[in-house]
């Protein structure tokens, strides 16, 4: 990979600014390896909970003109087995890994962080914002700055890994939430999680397309929302941001960086351009840097 793509993030030098976000591909060591070999610089596991979860019934995805909705329902084999996958991955590949974790209280997040301490994962990401388990757990934790503060604080008191807080776009003031995470000691933010949730209806069967009825909205239509929220959050926090939401091209990566992100996640893009999207986007970034006269990706800064 081109040296121009190398970028520093929380003490690590990544080979590419592209991140495999939580929930995409990352259920197994093989999947993580595939994304790394395809050119992602940082890989995130599916969100791991204390106990295994089967997730929602099928259908779990549905597409529309502007993107897709999904309601996987946080399926995962549990934190113990999930971290074994990270161990198996690390036996073969050196790329850094984020362990995404999902809990319902500061105590649960504390316990999850204790597991991550004993693992090969390099970072811990707190999924505070899944929009697809409203029936089960109510409004996502990241809707309230107090919950965000308490959970991040609780995890910071135990975690030996840098802590990343994953935020929801469905809030009145992203600045307040981002500040709460930073004030509690978060080392980075990851944003945005999928929007909504939304809903799609089959007009012939007269039923919702998803078994869960509602599902988080992702894909190209998310791009303007993501850029606006990252721009706002980065105006008031100093910690780096993993930006995601509608990133499917090298140009999108430059845009999201100019909005204030340090790294860029690619999720739904794996559907739109195939698993090779990481390679393609890396190439497009280098092309842009060359044409626009940047030495490396780190030189692309937030606009005013």
């Amino acid at each position: 990979m081109s040296k121009k793509l190398m970028i520093d993030f929380l003490g690590y030098t990544l080979a590419s600014p592209l991140v495999l976000p939580a929930g995409i591909m990352g259920i197994s060591s093989g999947s993580l390896a595939r994304a790394a070999n395809c050119g992602a610089g940082l890989l995130t596991t599916k969100s791991l909970s204390l106990k295994p979860r089967k997730g929602h019934n099928n259908p779990v995805t549905a597409c529309f003109e502007g993107g897709m909705i999904n309601a996987m329902g946080l399926c995962n084999p549990g934190i113990k087995e999930g971290l074994e996958e990270v161990r198996d991955f690390k036996k073969r590949i050196e790329s850094p890994v984020i362990a995404s974790v999902f809990g319902t209280s500061p105590e649960e997040f504390y316990e999850l962080a204790s597991y991550v301490n004993k693992s090969k994962a390099d970072f811990i990401e707190l999924n505070l914002s899944c929009p697809n388990v409203l029936d089960e757990f109510g409004v996502p934790l990241s809707a309230s700055k107090d919950s965000v503060y308490k959970i991040v604080k609780s995890v910071k008191s135990v975690s030996e890994r840098p802590v990343i807080a994953k935020l929801s776009p469905n809030v009145l003031s992203i600045k307040e939430i981002a500040m709460a995470a930073q004030n509690a000691g978060a080392d980075a933010l990851s944003m945005i999680n999928s929007l909504g949730p939304g809903m799609l209806i089959d007009i012939k069967l007269k039923r919702p397309v998803l078994a869960n009825k509602f599902g988080g909205v992702s894909g190209p239509c998310l791009k303007p929302v993501a850029q606006k929220l990252i721009y706002e959050a980065s105006s008031c926090v100093k910690i780096p941001i993993i930006g995601m939401g509608g990133v499917i091209s090298g140009k999108d990566v430059i845009e999201i960086k100019m909005a204030g992100a340090t790294l860029a996640g690619i999720g739904a893009g794996v559907f739109y351009r195939g698993i090779e999207i990481f390679k393609k986007v890396n190439r497009e970034i280098v092309k842009f840097l060359n044409e626009a006269g940047y030495e490396n990706i780190g030189e692309v800064k937030r606009i005013k």
């Binding site: 591909m25 060591s29 093989g30 996987m72 198996d88 999720g267 739904a268 794996v270 559907f271």
Partner: peptide, 14 residues
Amino acid sequence: KCAIGICGQCAMDP
């Protein structure tokens, strides 16, 4: 699950 290559459910190791 998704059948469109993004969820990782059917991915085979290694």
